[in-house]
Design a protein around this nucleic acid. Sequence first.
DNA 1: GTGAAAGCGCTAACAA
DNA 2: TTGTTAGCGCTTTCAC
Lengths: 350, 350
Amino acid sequence: MARTNGKQSAVERKPVSIRDVADASGVSLTTVSLILNNGDQRISEPTRARVLTAIERLGYRPNRLAQGLQNRRSNILAILVPHLRHTFADPYFGELISGIYDRANRSGYKILLEAAGRSFLREKRYLDLFDRCFVDGMLFMGSTDEHRFLHRFRDRKRPFILVNNTWPGLDHVVADYRAAGRLAAEHLVGLGHRRIGMIHGAGDVETARLLIAGFAETLAQHGVELPASCMEDGFYTEEGGAAAAEKLITANPSLTAIFTGNDKMAAGAIQRLQALGRRVPSDVSVVGCDDITQAAFVTPSLTTIRTPLYELGRRSCQRLIERLRGKDEPCQEVLPVELTVRQSTAPAAS
Amino acid sequence: MARTNGKQSAVERKPVSIRDVADASGVSLTTVSLILNNGDQRISEPTRARVLTAIERLGYRPNRLAQGLQNRRSNILAILVPHLRHTFADPYFGELISGIYDRANRSGYKILLEAAGRSFLREKRYLDLFDRCFVDGMLFMGSTDEHRFLHRFRDRKRPFILVNNTWPGLDHVVADYRAAGRLAAEHLVGLGHRRIGMIHGAGDVETARLLIAGFAETLAQHGVELPASCMEDGFYTEEGGAAAAEKLITANPSLTAIFTGNDKMAAGAIQRLQALGRRVPSDVSVVGCDDITQAAFVTPSLTTIRTPLYELGRRSCQRLIERLRGKDEPCQEVLPVELTVRQSTAPAAS
DNA sequence: GTGAAAGCGCTAACAA
DNA sequence: TTGTTAGCGCTTTCAC
């Protein structure tokens, strides 16, 4: 791999080293290090004070490359996202990232961003991140069944957490999507809806399957069918949701309610339904999933199942940090979801 | 500063070093390094092949902490965002980040995420990021006049780029906000609006002032006033936009159009206007700014000024990388904006 | 209590 | 064409 062979860099900075501090305070380099790392032991108060003063005065900061080289830790965690178009602009990922960031920051960990593109996976660069000492641990969000590389983390040799999805043998923190499906179904059935459609996310995502299962099961318990003709894939995007809504309503004109696998698809669906002359919610009710910030600001505001994205991020990171601290128990944590009722659902028309 | 004193880490991994490769292929460690770094020079073909094979077989990856320690580079760039609530979930920042990420990735740079919280600024940790060799360069977005620490980067000793804002003496890449204001004004005036309000972002943001200036100037050129009573701060949030819209329309019931400093405020404004019984756009037209993805999926879909966020991110990162490669010219780049007409604007009613 | 010295994994003069 | 060697800045035994 070619290196950028440019000049060293246009800048020159004072590299104050531990050596300088030692000289300035008339002690050995060991003493300085001891004071920095070993806390209260040994070193006499006067010496300690002198060194601390020198550190302050010189503005010394330990070089973390040198530190890391020594103790084999980078103090950086990687967040891996799938390679989609402008992935980081998606509020779903953004909420998770915010939660992870805040938790990591609290414990002094830095966050490295990485998108799992084709070459990244092909060249197994996710291993590099660990083996080249870039990061101490990794969190992956947005996984699908296609992400076969996840196998490699089952040996638990590299600290790894799957965020808001599951995979056999991997540690994860996930929202209760089965319950999400159930809550949506109960809400709609409770409003008297009987002819209901669903716009789901990709079929190769475990949580999407759980959501569908929970939704269909609960409808069935109430004697409501969810035939294949009432199911459409919305690909988790606004455009996909819009197209799916159009297909659904065209194929099943009598539909009075639609449940979507995320809020983006719901926003797209609402817009398309209105464009097709259906009023929401008086003609058709729509229930979303996730409760991203924007859900409250579409018109009508979206009734949705709240998955605690920020908290999922926090907890995932918490678990990873525990792991890094030596706790070696498998982790399968499920966080509860709840119904948030707004303006996009109403009693069935007929 | 206390270190996490936990166990080394629950895991143990094969650390294949350059030493191992050298031994395995019967050459010196230097030879291996030369092959890795110096490209095609010197080394004979047979030797090179032998070494490359060994590298492959052992799965050797150079430890970047060691590399970095040597050549004082981390190959990591920091993205600094202001510390707001769930900052990373904001599509505005997300688009910029996506652009930066993609450009950085193309040149082999990693991205480190950092939020500029109180302690981060107070303790000057932005300097640590450089001086402790965490990163080679930094991009900052979401800056305000309050971010005084920006002064410290004027000496150009540390590669730094301001993203989508300006600051005296700092390199930046920014959208043409004055033109954005002008385009919005021309659009509304062109539709016959004369009683126009504005919901602006914070007054301590230079781009917000430029936007206001461009908007007011152009209205004035067309003989339209923009009195103080028609200006409200929306704090760049949906809730703020909603509250501002209510104030505006209450104080000036005859308003027929509102321009907002970003799309989030526009979404909030639209929702509140509708809640107050005003139809958008037939009673009141609304123009947003930025054109985030969600702008197309509020109801009615939002007419807005497109600032090329993703491209701003890309260019900013491009500039930073050029800087890292030794180019030392100041950079003040302005990217054009354009009007995107959708459903939220219509000819003036009266 | 404090310091000398070895070594983390790598790069790059300088020799050979 | 290849190898020897001296660090990069830090941590950590082990002596004193």
